[in-house]
Simulated assay, not measured.
Amino acid sequence: MMQGISPLARRVLALGAGLALLSSAVHAAGSYSRVLPEKSSLAFVSQQMGVSVDGRFTRFSATLDFDLAKPEAGSATLDIELASIDAGGPEANDEVKGKNWFDVKQHPTARFVSSSVKPLGNNRYEVRGQMSIKGKTREVAAPFTLKPDGSGALLEGSFPIKRLEFGVGTGAWGDTSVVADEVQIRFKLAVAGK
């Protein structure tokens, strides 16, 4: 079929085909849609009487649609099973599951739904969206970095929330000199390509 084509034209066609394949591979490598929960983590840091207290949630699920070529079109949701909290021990866990804190019987899940993604340069981005906890919804902004990792990537970031805006830690626990209002949420999401 290529017999009537000059050697130069053949090289140009081969180069074009190679570039098209390379472009397709690069695009596919920069598109992420699956979150790998077993390689991901969701943690928080609060201050209790001036001392940092670390905790985490062990069960959560996320959906993601993120393309490095079109980051502004990205979207994400995160659902957190509040009863999966690990606040450092059985007594603390039981306390924070109760009505004064998360009230997991009435509000078993916290949810984040993105509304926009903005590139900040150098593999850094900011996702904005609505965070819902205990029936209250507030807008949050979460800066994150994206680090390619084999065929996937690691999204890592943190953002603060004000717990009292969500009704978390009421009654005696509403005293911010005992437990600070601001809580830092930290996430590491391992993601795989489409």
Rank of each mutant, 00 (worst) to 15 (best):
G129E: 10
K162D: 11
R138P: 10
G129V: 04
S116N: 11
S158A: 11
G135A: 09
L155M: 15
S132C: 06
S151K: 14
S158H: 12
E126H: 05
L146N: 04
L155C: 12
N122V: 03
T137E: 01
E156H: 13
P143F: 10
K147V: 07
G135Q: 09
G150P: 08
A141L: 02
R138I: 09
G171V: 04
P143A: 14
K134I: 04
S151E: 12
F159I: 09
L155Q: 03
G169P: 10
V113R: 10
V140P: 03
S116A: 15
R163K: 08
G135V: 05
E165A: 12
R163M: 07
L154K: 08
S132T: 15
R111N: 13
R128E: 14
I161F: 11
G152K: 03
N123H: 13
K136N: 12
G135T: 05
T145S: 12
G152M: 01
V113A: 10
A172K: 15
A141I: 01
F112C: 08
A153M: 06
T145R: 02
G169C: 07
G150W: 05
G171F: 04
R111I: 07
F159S: 06
A172G: 12
G150M: 08
V140F: 02
L154R: 09
F166R: 02
T170C: 03
S151T: 13
V168R: 04
M131T: 01
F159L: 07
T137R: 00
E165W: 03
P160Q: 13
R138Q: 14
V113M: 01
Y125K: 00
